[in-house]
């Protein structure tokens, strides 16, 4: 009987669409409630600062490593594609624009989705299955105000800062490859960066990273608060938060790209 139900494609897709719409509605409501507590942030600044440290400062080493290798790989990639077609003196501009517009913000966001989105879902999921969320409610404390608002705002604020670090380190990584392996002097490399530099490139990347940060934390909170089923449920929530956040980062990237450019 169950198999027969699952085999009915109309019912199957209908259920999937209904679930998607319900979840979208829940996330939208959570977003609205999260922002409704912003006026109380002055009182809750300690919660916000703690999350800024956790999401921002503690993620910095990882962002630096990822940024450095991304920059190095993109320099090799550019050299591979330029070989025999375009002069290597333009590698600086090609790599820097790719880093500022796409690689810096998107890769940072995906790393943060793995580190922060999943950890928020696991933390809140554990709180949910061990009745700590109910305990907050029983003390007259809104879990949205106490848990969601500081996390979502901290991620929204820290993601552009992490992206700035990722951009700088990635550019440095690209320069190392260009200078040491492709024999491009620092003057040629940075002249090339400057020649095609547009402030819009950097700001568009930072603008996108604001949304990436917010959506990553929001999905982590939503998935965490919906966790059920003990330790297994917590594990599933962490994976789900990462997959959803990473997918949303890429979808948002496309949408924002079409709006900005």
């Amino acid at each position: 009987m169950l198999m027969a139900k699952n085999r009915n494609p109309i019912r199957y897709f209908g259920r999937k669409i209904a679930n998607f719409l319900r979840e979208f509605g829940e996330i939208s409501r959570l977003l609205g409630r999260t922002f409704s507590f912003i006026p109380r942030l002055g009182r809750d600044r300690i919660l916000l600062f703690n999350q800024m440290e956790h999401i921002g400062t503690n993620s910095l080493p990882l962002v630096i490593v990822i940024g450095f290798f991304t920059g190095m790989v993109s320099a090799w990639q550019a050299a591979y594609q330029f070989k025999g077609l375009i002069t290597f003196s333009l590698i600086g501009s090609a790599v820097s624009r790719a880093i500022f517009i796409e690689l810096g913000p998107v890769l940072t966001a995906i790393v943060i989705a793995g580190r922060v989105g999943a950890s928020i879902a696991a933390e809140l999921g554990t709180m949910q299955v061990t009745e700590q969320i109910d305990a907050l409610e029983s003390l007259g404390i809104s879990p949205v105000r106490y848990l969601s608002t500081p996390r979502v705002l901290a991620a929204t604020m820290m993601m552009p800062i992490l992206t700035i670090f990722a951009n700088i380190i990635a550019l440095f990584g690209a320069f190392i490859v260009a200078n040491f392996f492709l024999d491009i002097s620092h003057k040629v490399f940075f002249d090339s960066v400057k020649r095609f530099f547009h402030l819009k490139d950097i700001f568009s990347g930072l603008f996108k990273s604001v949304f990436f940060g917010g959506v990553t934390a929001l999905i982590g909170v939503h998935v965490g608060l919906k966790t059920g089923g003990g330790a297994e449920g917590v594990g599933k929530s962490s994976i789900r938060a990462f997959v959803l956040s990473a997918a949303m980062v890429l979808i948002l990237d496309y949408i924002l790209w079409t709006i900005i450019f």
Binding site: T126, M127, T130, E131, Q132, D134, A135, E137, S138, L139, G140, I141, S142
Partner: peptide
């Protein structure tokens, strides 16, 4: 309303089965 409910909850002490302490 949420504010009324939270104010009321502050007058109710709840001991949870698992104690539900914040780790």
């Amino acid at each position: 309303k949420e504010e009324v409910l939270y104010a009321l909850r502050r007058r109710i002490g709840f001991l949870f089965q698992s104690a539900a302490l914040f780790d």
